[in-house]
Design a binder for these strands. Sequence first.
DNA 1: AAACAGTATGACGATTTTGTGACGGGCGCA
DNA 2: TGCGCCCGTCACAAAATCGTCATACTGTTT
Lengths: 229, 229
Amino acid sequence: MPGKILVVDDEPAIRAMVRFALKQADYNCAEAGDAIEAQALVTADPPELILLDWMLPGLSGVDYARRLRRERLTQNIPIIMLTARVDEEDKVRALNTGADDFITKPFSPRELVARVRAVLRRMAPMAVDEVVVAEGLVLDPSTHKVLANDERLSLGPTEFRLLHFFMTHPERVHSRERVLDAVWGNNAYIDERTVDVHIRRLRKALTVSGYDRFIQTVRGVGYRFSGDA
Amino acid sequence: MPGKILVVDDEPAIRAMVRFALKQADYNCAEAGDAIEAQALVTADPPELILLDWMLPGLSGVDYARRLRRERLTQNIPIIMLTARVDEEDKVRALNTGADDFITKPFSPRELVARVRAVLRRMAPMAVDEVVVAEGLVLDPSTHKVLANDERLSLGPTEFRLLHFFMTHPERVHSRERVLDAVWGNNAYIDERTVDVHIRRLRKALTVSGYDRFIQTVRGVGYRFSGDA
DNA sequence: AAACAGTATGACGATTTTGTGACGGGCGCA
DNA sequence: TGCGCCCGTCACAAAATCGTCATACTGTTT
């Protein structure tokens, strides 16, 4: 059950279109016509993502984005900008205000959903309950056990969380910084090289069952968890 | 190479500590003891980020932040507040004056660097992670994989960036200088012939699947990426 | 055809990035 | 208090990649 998304746009037609598109994709949807309404909804019940129009009556979308971004210290809500023109200048400014993506109007429902999914996926925390499976590798967060071809392998707490993170975010390359944020917590001030060491330990634990090949290093960028070479 | 950062604090000890920490992380560092000094430095040569003490002799940090936000020249420069207490009230006020983050004293050098990086990253334009396709060639920045007719080919970091640049700017001739700017960074002191060598390496990697024909040399001008001969 | 300028290619030392083993410290538990 | 476990950091080894150069090649000009 996907979460709730807040649309902020002064044009009801746009809102309706967005609501419809999101409903098709099983997203709940809250609506606001200006920044004031939006802020009320955000504080009352924080959405998972905000779709924010570039031009808004009163406080403009840009300014509101900036404000949201400042408050994002505590609340990490991704923002997608809706902008009318394809102006390169505005595009840069929009990104500078802290938007995570932007969509230029007019846009298709399909594009909207695709971008929403992309951003949410990028931000996605790990599902804490679900059993994760990749080929013969099974990780069960609830029992804190990892099976490789039905053989139990023992990991330390950090290695477990690391593997969990990788298995829930496969294929994508993760910078050491990103891994630190996800596995150690958003404010652990730790040397990035520590990631290497834990990768090493995790790999060693996985080697006995031959699954160390899943963890690939992408030179100069970070690491990736993937089934194929 | 990271840019310059301005530290505004009346305690020389703090400034020294900050300077040292930032130098470790390869940031240049300017210092000021009060708002007057700070303002001189800011107008002379705007820094990329300002570390601003909450309490300052004369014009207070909060007021100065507010003033910075009003000036066109400085309103896009992120500000991190240095504050002694963790007062929730002050925190809100700080954010409202336009601070992008704040650090409570005392803090570790590592925390400082981490927060500076975080704020700078938030300000930086997002990398557009879209998959680029040209005939049978597929380059995916998010997974950092390149497929040529479904066959995986492995590129070094520079070759990857080079191919990415070419694929996102096809059908156009690029001078070596232009390529250096785009792929190596806007101020890399590197022999232009190095481009030739990397073109060569990229071509070799592409040859196995016959895609080297995509990279054409335009004698006396530069190179071009294009599907047709 | 020879001279010339621009480009391709292979090799090499230097540098950067990552892998690996070891060490000391903290923390819980007996 | 002693012990075992796990962690973060370091120093060093190994590996990958980089930038430059010398040389061979190619197309152009005179």
